[in-house]
Design a protein around this nucleic acid. Structure first.
Lengths: 215, 215
DNA sequence: GCATTTCGTCAACATCTGTTCACTAAAAAA
DNA sequence: TTTTTTAGTGAACAGATGTTGACGAAATGC
């Protein structure tokens, strides 16, 4: 009986970790929130046996945190790049927005993952995400502090303004994620809305007087 | 053999439906998103046997939709009440905000449920929620259209402005829900931020000129 | 009063879950 | 090379899951 002399049935060795992460991300995109994925489901999609999972992660929540880290690592570096491009003014707005939303478009899976975990995840997960968002807010506030025309605005109010921007961009991102991947018209629509809304905020900021309580 | 002559072991009859809904809501608050609740879990907490579930709902997702309806029914009526209280101006802001956030505080469970389903739920669920939110946005835009000082703003831009407000209030609501129920300081903080942010938007709206494309 | 429908219980099923343990092929270290 | 460590497989477990069907008590209709 001619036994099959070549047996590279599992030629991939050392790539299982990445396969697991990709599988999980995939399932999140086209099925359910991460919190409701089962270990077996993920391993099945990754093409490995369930027990192989434990060679790479102690449990599902560890996978989740790793995925979260991956999601934000690339996002952070993009944000840094956007921030040091130009000094902000009304003209810069459009460019930044386009850069950001293009990034969202090209990293749909990661954003979907984060969006679903922002509320559906474990407390640990939720806190991690909120910490990142707060960090973005802080950085934005610091950037704004460097504008001459915002000199008279105190730190607390700068934080408030940055929060307003971040809240809105977050909401628009979620709106964008709900659209079909090929719905170019809808995406353009969201982008235009975003630009207008940020410009409106920009106007409001110009009118703001920090010291007022009720005068 | 003295048999127990009184056997009111399950004296509650006809209240199971409410018990199931309450149980589900309870579990959502202190455990996990609705999507990850199991039928057995819910019935156990409701104090009934799993099969009793089917007397009231065909499956879990039906329960979810009912819960969603309940959540929005009370919210809608409150919004209507707030809207017809006064004509909006800067002074009205504080009152409306307080009313709204008090309502959030008193209906924590329902809001938590909605927040977690907004992204974690099934497509059906998500669409239902987004439709409600869009309705609020539309109503707000219609209210704004009645202000004299917004006469020169076209319908599309009114929609955009209303969207900005709703986005932000939604985000702040979520922030509020993340706080402990007895964290009075934190809640007050969010409320103050909300007021400032809405006032800033109010300023921006005052500066807005609809017709401008780039001039 | 009796008949019927409503509504909850109980037992049982097939399926899926996370996790264990022993085993082995491949890769790295010696 | 030989040895050791790494990273996969496979069988098996106890428990939880959704759903079925037959049964009975309470509520309702007549």
């Amino acid at each position: 009986m001619t036994k099959d002399s070549s047996r590279p049935r599992k030629p991939k060795r050392g790539q299982t970790r990445e396969a697991l992460m990709a599988a999980a991300l995939d399932l999140v995109v086209k099925k359910a929130p991460f919190s409701s994925l089962s270990l077996r489901e993920v391993t099945k999609r990754a093409g490995v046996v369930p027990t192989a999972f434990y060679r790479h992660f102690p449990d599902m929540s560890a996978l989740g945190l790793t995925l979260l880290d991956e999601s934000f690592r690339t996002l952070r570096q993009m944000m840094r790049q956007v921030r040091q491009e130009e000094l902000p003014n009304e003209r810069m707005l459009r460019g930044s927005i386009e850069t950001y939303f293009n990034y969202v478009r090209n990293n749909r899976a990661h954003f979907l993952f984060v969006a679903k975990e922002l509320f559906g995840g474990t407390p640990t997960m939720r806190n991690a995400i909120r910490r990142e968002i707060r960090m973005f807010t802080n950085e934005l506030a610091m950037d704004m502090a460097r504008f001459p025309f915002l000199n008279h605005v105190n730190a607390e109010d700068l934080q408030m303004m940055a929060g307003l921007v971040v809240n809105n961009v977050t909401a628009l991102t979620q709106e964008m994620l709900e659209l079909e991947e090929d719905d170019d018209y809808g995406q353009q629509q969201v982008l235009q809305t975003a630009e207008k809304q940020l410009r409106l905020i920009y106007f409001g900021v110009g009118q703001w007087k920090s010291s007022n309580a009720s005068s």
